[in-house]
């Protein structure tokens, strides 16, 4: 009996093997790996130096440091989320495409890269088409647009800001303001950005697609 107990005492339950926890996905502050970003950066670095890049904003210091110091880009930061928020509040969303065109007054084929983030999710189809065509005109051959597109409609969704962590990952952070998020089907995105080709498209775990569009 005692020997049984001693034997039992030495028999330890197999240690619960430490199950590797998935990397921090804390909802609004999730770090999500990006396959589009390295390709976008690669497209930029192939452009004649210094590349010019439009960031739809809001401004994030680390992104500025990363893109500016590391790639030597000329950055144009337009806080279009602010513009969007203003039009949503005043109920003048129909005027938003005009306002965007006014703010993005770059010549045709003068911009190498555009980070539009999830801006198009908050636009309805006609407005999205107008803004998209404006971006296509501004983009230089070889240039690229990177953005996030929701896969389903959300009645009320917070604005997000996207912080570059490194070459291959982004931190998706909550930003002030919210609006209705519209899902544009892939075929609609292709039509919106007529003149560009979808170079990469990745479905992310946070219910959105990361899409890289290139101009030939």
């Amino acid at each position: 009996m005692l020997s049984d107990l001693l034997r039992w005492g030495t028999k330890r339950a197999p240690e619960t093997t430490a199950v590797p926890k998935p990397p921090a996905v804390k909802g609004i502050e999730a770090i999500i790996s990006s396959k589009g970003l390295p390709k976008f950066l690669s497209a930029l670095s192939n452009q004649p130096s210094p590349a010019s890049l439009i960031d739809f904003g809001p401004v994030i210091g680390t992104n500025v440091a990363y893109l500016g110091e590391r790639l030597g880009c000329k950055l144009f930061i337009e806080d279009l989320t602010n513009e969007l928020s203003r039009h949503l509040k005043s109920g003048t969303m129909d005027a938003l495409p005009d306002a965007v065109e006014l703010r993005l007054r770059h010549g045709d084929a003068s911009v190498d890269g555009i980070l539009c983030w999830d801006f198009f999710d908050f636009l309805k189809k006609p407005a999205a088409q107008r803004v998209a065509q404006h971006l296509v005109n501004m983009l230089r051959p070889g240039g690229a647009i990177m953005g996030y597109f929701a896969i389903s409609d959300v009645e009320r969704s917070n604005f997000m800001k996207y912080e570059i962590v490194d070459d291959q990952s982004m931190r998706h952070r909550q930003h002030t303001g919210s609006g209705a998020r519209h899902a544009h089907p892939n075929r609609e995105i292709i039509r919106m950005f007529e003149g560009l080709t979808v170079a990469e498209s990745f479905l992310l775990k946070n219910n959105s697609r990361e899409i890289l569009l290139r101009k030939k």
Partner: peptide, 28 residues
Amino acid sequence: RGSIDMQKAGAKPGEKPETKPAGASTSP
């Protein structure tokens, strides 16, 4: 709001960023 023009520090003008695939657990 505006543009930022920074001289490149460290990286060469034509240097390409690494395009290694990201970690499996969070990779899309």
